[in-house]
Design a protein around this nucleic acid. Structure first.
Lengths: 283, 283
DNA sequence: CTATGCATGTCGATA
DNA sequence: TATCGACGTGCATAG
């Protein structure tokens, strides 16, 4: 009797992980329009960024309405559901739709590619009809870079709170964004002689509107404190001629201050804080 | 003696015109950085539109200043000398420079591509440093399409000039953009009872500022014509609650009018004019 | 939603 | 160039 054959099967699974290099730019031009439609729908569903370059016309209906005849343009769909149509010139898009749009991609008359971006509120529609698409691609961009802006009005506010002498010696700031009837006072303080001071900040040349704004706040504070003297100071890098006239008429004051100088002050302040940290904590 | 040889040379020039198909999109990625530099310079000199997609950081110094750390973005250079840097989200570019910039393309540290956009006035600089360029292309777009926008404030003005009864029966418009002390009166007319009428137009919900503006104009006209009654009418699709209160306090009036209805009136007007042309001229 | 004010606002017209 | 006002302003924030 032949010995029983013992077969043992050992199953070995080999797991292969396909590590492909990430392709941030995938070109999908040179395809049949119908293929392109499904590619675009696929990309949009996955909230990819999409570029389209081609011959198109654009219609917009919403708060206003507009038409744009056929021409060659760049269309950008972004991950946040915004869209923009760029002509070869102008920094601003000729048509656009803000974030959170719903995109529809369709083939119309079997030979035109239509991108429709619908915004819910206010109800607005942008229709792009491509007669020809020269190029299109799906982008998979990773952007975690921090964006920092300096010399904003907010920087001016913080700088003056830290260094009130940027405006005037002896000034003490007692509140910021102080709510009053018509809005909020940028900065509010008391001067060396005990007078209330209303500060209105502008990061660029102050115009008449800035003066009107300041005046409203000063009047409100005067109404609240009939027995205190109240000063109104417009703080800006410059003031227009008309605004200066109005300012003088209303017995308000102007203090020239460059927002960049404020950014400088803040930068120095940050360094000081870091140095203090270093000597106190790290040593 | 052998006969003299007479050689005659006739030069025939054959002119060959190389008619190549226009290529609106030329991709210049996958090149050595140094090659790319010269390609980009070449394109920029010829005022071509350029797209760049890659890993970059951005610095801006000018009216304000900003920094943006490394991340993957789309950069667009346009034919008018404007530039914009787009993140994968936001309809607005994170950094930009308006038209008429001067562009510089350089290789820095032998391995980074730098695009520098310089604006003359105000003096501003945007620096883009590419660590990596995934894709770049030169676009040669032709865009002669006419852009038309309807339902703007200007449309409202024209519609009311043609059809004053959009505001009120018996109103006659006597001037537009009438210059007065603080600015320009949108529309100025006389009502059925011979009173002066100052019209302030807004294409969207009117706020307090609109009322302040109207009030200033009305006061100026009253000053000029102390013996005439003067009305001030705010014409807008809607008015904010605060603005309505202020309006009543100042004894001004509000006339609801939709800019789209104005666009409609104009469209009808244009059709009529065309019909008139047809019957008078073309027949 | 409405109201308010900033923005590297942009853009165009005008003095 | 400086000023002024409109804009599909956009955008954030507060109530």
């Amino acid at each position: 009797m032949p010995p029983a054959l013992n077969y043992r099967f050992q199953l070995i699974f080999i797991v292969v992980e396909l590590v492909d290099e990430r392709r941030p730019v995938r070109i999908i031009s040179d395809r049949q329009l119908s293929e392109m439609v499904s590619d675009l729908r696929h990309a949009i569903e996955r909230r990819k960024m999409v570029l389209l370059i081609g011959l198109c016309k654009v219609d917009y209906r919403g708060r206003a309405s507009s038409t744009l005849d056929y021409g060659e343009r760049l269309v950008i769909l972004k991950t946040d559901g915004s869209i923009q149509i760029h002509r070869p010139w102008d920094v601003n898009p000729v048509n656009w739709q803000p974030p959170d749009c719903i995109f529809h991609v369709d083939l119309v008359d079997n030979s035109f590619l239509r991108i429709r971006a619908i915004r819910k509120s206010p109800r607005e529609i942008v229709d792009i009809i491509f007669k020809e698409v020269y190029f299109s691609s799906v982008l998979d961009l990773v952007d975690k870079g921090v964006f920092s802006l300096y010399a904003s009005e907010h920087d001016m506010q913080r700088a003056i709170m830290i260094n009130p002498e940027l405006v005037e010696d002896g000034l003490r700031i007692i509140s910021y964004e102080k709510p009053v009837e018509p809005g909020f006072i940028d900065l509010y303080g008391i001067d060396s002689k005990g007078r209330f001071v209303v500060l209105e900040l502008k990061r660029r040349v102050a115009d008449r509107d800035a003066i009107v704004q300041l005046s409203r706040y000063v009047e409100e504070i005067k109404r609240r404190s009939p027995y205190r003297e109240v000063r109104g100071i417009l703080v800006a890098p410059d003031i227009s001629r008309n605004a200066l006239t109005l300012l003088k008429t209303l017995h308000l004051e102007f203090k020239r201050l460059d927002p960049k100088k404020c950014a400088e002050v803040l930068r120095r302040k940050v360094s000081e804080v870091k140095l203090t940290d270093f000597f106190r904590g790290k040593q």
